[in-house]
Every structure is written in C-alpha cells, then in structure tokens.
Amino acid sequence: MKHLIDIKDFSTQELDALIRVAKDIMKHPENYAHKCAGKKLATLFFEPSTRTRLSFEAAMYELGGHVLGFSEADSSSAAKGESVADTARIVSCYADIIAMRHPKEGAPLVAAMNCPIPVINAGDGGHNHPTQTLTDLLSISVEKGRLDNMTIGLCGDLKFGRTVHSLIAAMSEYSGIKFVLISPEELKLPGYVKDILKSKNIPFEQTASLEESMPKLDILYMTRVQRERFFNEEDYLRLKNSYILTPQKLHNAKEDLCILHPLPRVNEISTAVDSDPRACYFKQALYGKYIRMALILKLLEVE
C-alpha cells in the first residue's frame, strides 16, 4: 500500500505512469466510469479549500465511486479534540482512501502512519501540496507534449511558494531543463532549493525582470506576490505591479508559451490575458481532476 504525502514519494517512472493514465482518462473517460464502483473516498478537510476538495470529489464521482467527509474542522471530531491519528483510524473503517487537508504541517503523514488505507496529502499548511505538483506536471506534459528540454520561468513569490519548490524538485528529474527565477529581491528562491539545482547541475538564472526573461520561456509559472510577505508597504507598492502579467508583457513571448498558475488568481494575471491561447491556467484546473483520478486508481490498486 502506498500513500502520497510528498511528491518525492513517487519516482519519475511512477509520475510518468500516472501522467499516461491521466491522458488515457482524458481520451476515454467512459473506460474509467465504473473503475471505483463500491469504493469510497473520504475528504477530510480540516481547513476550507473549495477547489482542491471539489476536484477530488469530482475525480471520485467520475470513477464511479462515492465520497464522504467534511470541509472544515468545526464540523469534525477535531473540534472535540480528537487526534489526527484517531480520526484517520476511525475513517479507515468507513472509507477506502483518504484525501486530507490540514493547516498543520505533517498532519497527513501522521494519518498515513496510523491507518491501514492510502492517504493523499491534499495540502498541509505551507509545507506540501503534491497533487498540485501532479497537476502542474500533467499540464506541462499535455500542453508541451513533453517534460524535458525546456526553459521554465517561475515568477513572483519564489521564497514562500510551496508549489514552486515542489515543481522545481519534480522537474529537476527530467533532462534538458533550465529555470529562470523571476522575483523581487525579497522573495528570491531559498538557498536550500537552489542547492538542489546546483547539486544536479541544472542551469538557472535569477532576475527581477519578467519582460527581459519572456522571449526565452517555454513555460511561465505565475504565482502571487502577497502583501503580507513584505516588511514595509513601500517595497510592496514598488514591486507589486512588476509581476502582473498583461498582454503587453507577452508581446515578445514565444507563440507556444504555456502560462500556468496554481490559482486562485488575484490580480497577478490580468483578465485580458485569459483569452490568449497561451493562457492554460483554467485548463490546468481541469487537468487537476484527471491526475487525481489517475492517483486514486493507483493508490487503490485498481487495474
């Protein structure tokens, strides 16, 4: 039995296999409509996350399975002080697989260590969110037709953005990848993530200019620059607009650029970009459902 707590729990071969299954589901959804008949997914969301929860639930329904669970801690036994381990043990009596979101880092691991059914980490605080990374990988694979030999621009908050760190870790396993790290000085990629790149001899450059980097990018992964990350308001006001993607900033971008964003978007991508064929962030949300379907099948060991 396998869990997905951290994207590193899966080898590159396993990730590739998941992506293959997800693509097959996209082509032939009817072949998968009853694969999980009689199975139950428990969505244990100790903090609200509408998109991730609905994506998991839609994934299980489209596999012919059932869903039970809760969407906030107040409506769970956690409000009475029950431990994560006990909650997981009890839920394993009623469900076949768990998707857990929890505000505390490591909570899904505690669940996995204490229950006999597969556990999927659906986000644990600012720590890990592996199904977002799976979503990103499938999005890149579908949109570009490959996961190797490309230049990936990561833009915005590279310091605190967990999705960025996980994506770098996952993409670093593929050959011919280059990274362009676009951020203000205050939100540069942390040293320990850069160490991963250095140890694998993966080329990367750091810059503060989105416009200058644009022509070389095959992928542009946008994240939000958050006001609360800055020490003073002046710096935030000075920098916030530098990282808003507008149609003007795309004028020298490649024609087959793929623009991604983990969502929710606030203002970092102008709505005027939405109609650009290179904007893939809404399709990305759809891909998230398919890769979660593939993941559920794998963890339930359904052929």
């Binding site: 431990s83 381990a85 505390k104 490591g106 505690v110 644990d124 605080g125 600012g126």
Partner: peptide
C-alpha cells in the same frame, strides 16, 4: 516550528 503538527498533538 509552530506550524508543525507536533505543536498541537502533544502525544506524538
């Protein structure tokens, strides 16, 4: 780390 699960679940 105050955000770690060990901070709220004393028996872990």
């Amino acid at each position: 780390n105050p955000r770690c699960i060990t901070g709220v679940e004393q028996e872990l």
